[in-house]
């Protein structure tokens, strides 16, 4: 399946399914089912270069939580890939949850990815992309213009 990323760089490492990887945890690439416990990767995140999270159907959103835990809680900084039901209209959510590469066979996916960050100039909630929320921007605006 075609692979996309905003920077164009993706690793060629072959990910092992979680059960196999547990036998060989030194291998730097792993692929998780959306029911696998991401917490178990905690001791290894520094070494991992690729984690693949799966969307069995695009409407099954469990991997969004896995992604946020990997990035936000475990501090994983390597490539985080979405695979399975990956469609361009999920990209705003996926980017915010910390995904940075995508397997998708949807036509026009690459063009859509290039435009995703232009769709919304405002976000309301803190996530893994470290964008300043509307509420934070309001606070700093108020501090600059205390009268407002």
């Amino acid at each position: 399946m075609p692979l996309f990323s905003e920077t164009g760089s993706t690793t060629i490492l072959e990910p092992l399914p979680f059960a196999d990887w547990q036998q060989r945890p030194a291998w730097p690439a792993v692929s998780l089912a959306n029911t696998d416990p991401v917490e178990d990767l905690a001791p290894h995140v520094g070494r991992l270069r690729l984690i693949v999270l799966s969307f069995p159907k695009f409407s099954d959103g469990r991997a969004y939580s896995q992604a946020r835990l990997l990035r936000g809680r475990l501090g994983y900084t390597g490539e985080l890939r979405a695979t399975g039901g990956v469609l361009q209209d999920q990209l705003p959510f996926m980017l915010r949850c910390g995904f940075d590469s995508f397997e998708s066979d949807q036509k026009g996916f690459g063009e859509a990815l290039a435009k995703t960050r232009t769709l919304f100039s405002v976000v309301y909630q803190p996530a893994e992309d470290d964008r300043a929320t509307a509420s934070l921007l309001r606070l700093s605006r108020r501090n600059v213009h205390p009268a407002v």
């Binding site: 969004y64 939580s65 705003p92 959510f93 915010r96 919304f120 909630q125 509307a134």
Partner: peptide, 11 residues
């Protein structure tokens, strides 16, 4: 505001 387009909880 928090729930609108929440990236983790839209599916």
């Amino acid at each position: 505001q928090w729930s609108t387009l929440h990236p983790e909880f839209s599916f």
